[in-house]
Design a protein around this nucleic acid. Sequence first.
DNA 1: CTTGATCCTCACGTCGACGTGAGGTTTTAG
DNA 2: CTAAAACCTCACGTCGACGTGAGGATCAAG
Lengths: 128, 128
Amino acid sequence: MRIGKVAEGAGVSVRALRYYEEQGLVVADRSPSGHRRYPESAVERVRFIQLLYSAGLSSKAILQVLPFLDTLVATPRMTQRLKDERDRIRTQIDDLTRAHDRLEELIGLATESATSPATCSTSLDAAT
Amino acid sequence: MRIGKVAEGAGVSVRALRYYEEQGLVVADRSPSGHRRYPESAVERVRFIQLLYSAGLSSKAILQVLPFLDTLVATPRMTQRLKDERDRIRTQIDDLTRAHDRLEELIGLATESATSPATCSTSLDAAT
DNA sequence: CTTGATCCTCACGTCGACGTGAGGTTTTAG
DNA sequence: CTAAAACCTCACGTCGACGTGAGGATCAAG
């Protein structure tokens, strides 16, 4: 598989794939002329990498958990890494949920003051 | 209130507060000598700003929803902004949840292969 | 008055995941 | 054979939320 097809299949840019290789996240062998050749499995792998990136993991963090995907053998260090990242994601979800709820609350106030304009007609009564 | 106390109270750096002011997120009047003076309410305001930052909003996005906190009057544009950000946060929570579940799955595999070492006993089991 | 803590304004440094040419080779379709 | 499309390797640019001095003024306490 050539780089363009992998990029298309995984929904990332060609540049991104080269960057991933530079970071050691994907390996590609080369054609005699120097063009990268990927196995079909690369698409799924890249999608997983994207998932982790979008979850806020850094290249280095991803690099430390990816070997597990290949070997399915986890060192204690790797397992710990997985758990750490999971916990980090958990707390981030909690943060986001709080922000979400706060925004909902504000949206409620906004639409309320929009639908019942009578209460805010005179001055600032709906304040605080 | 002086900047140091606000920083301490809100759990951010002094530099961050100056940056927020530069971005128009907080206003502070000045003492005759030029030192910033904040109202007590600044602490809560900064906490809210932090909440939005941690939810992935940019300074510009925050700047567009903050006026609502002050006036409690939402223009349609502002309300839409609030809803857009809420939706963005929702999808981000979904992404994170997917990543979280995927990691859980992997952790399951990892601890499983660790608790039943019979299958991989001979070669690399206690590695590192 | 003095000293240490706190404050001020520039203004450059950082870090990470790519974007974006520049300049050149290779592959593919006709 | 030719032209377009796809690929290659440098290597600098980006963006945002601050960190980090430099160099100096101000404040609170003794």
